[in-house]
Design a protein around this nucleic acid. Structure first.
Lengths: 135, 135
DNA sequence: TAAGCTAATTACCTTTAGGTAAGTCCGTTG
DNA sequence: CAACGGACTTACCTAAAGGTAATTAGCTTA
């Protein structure tokens, strides 16, 4: 993503760069919960490839959304965390997740599948946003 | 977009279907402002192709986000409007737009370009979300 | 020295998104 | 009848997103 072309002229296209990728919301949501290492993210996001994770982390870094912290201990540790600017995205993501869960319930109802209690908001703090085959 | 695969198992992937397309936010935002005809949308969204607009409208329709109303007057008129469910997406989009504009200003400041007054929220009602080459 | 861990990078491939341009269908207007 | 407007549809193409798998590089532990 060139990060230059779309952004010029439309702020919303700029914002879209951080929210439209398949794994972006999941990554940011997890980083909000806790600063994480590369492997942590790989483990918490079953299905993501190392390539895509590196890609997205690089992109977030360049965009000032995420910062990388290298601990020169042994073994070397690399942590990713949201920047102050990155944190401003959290309310946006929260809204998306809230909508998503509120709406999934409707979908489930339509399909007469088992519906879960409406404790969505409470769950938000620890919620896992990921690609799963089955719930 | 098959609307079936990604959605199963992750509500956020379900939500992403409505927000990640290049023109989706723009379309929904405009429909919130006013129910519109096909040509209206074509005109208000300079750069969108008829193909993509039809595609997105179909998808929104099937998803229950937008409803199509055909007036059998002469000449026949077709109007698209948000459904009740579609309206629930508006706060989400509003957050995205708010973030986008707040953040664009920061970007502009960094690049020492001319910055506009912080009247973002007031502008929201009539704001055009589109792909433009220059502001 | 071999094997392992962490954090990548690289090459290759498939799928999806989106753009371009032409054509269609139907009813209307000149 | 020809041209036009509205709402599409279709075929074709390019670019971007994302997946798979192998490789790298530095350091560590057995």
């Amino acid at each position: 993503m060139s990060s230059e072309e779309l952004y010029v002229g439309c702020p919303v296209q700029h914002a879209r760069q951080f929210l439209s990728g398949k794994w972006q919301i999941a990554i940011l949501w997890h980083l909000k919960a806790q600063p994480s290492r590369f492997v942590d993210l790989i483990n918490i996001l079953p299905g993501i490839s190392e390539k895509v994770l590196t890609q997205e982390l690089r992109f977030f870094e360049e965009s000032g959304i995420v910062q990388k912290e290298i601990f020169f201990c042994t073994p070397v540790k690399v942590e990713y965390r949201l920047t102050t600017q990155g944190l401003t995205l959290i309310p946006v993501i929260q809204q998306i997740i809230l909508w998503a869960y509120a709406n999934l319930q409707e979908e489930k109802a339509k399909r007469s599948m088992s519906s879960t209690p409406a404790s969505v908001i409470n769950d938000l703090e620890t919620m896992q946003v990921s690609e799963r085959n089955q719930e």
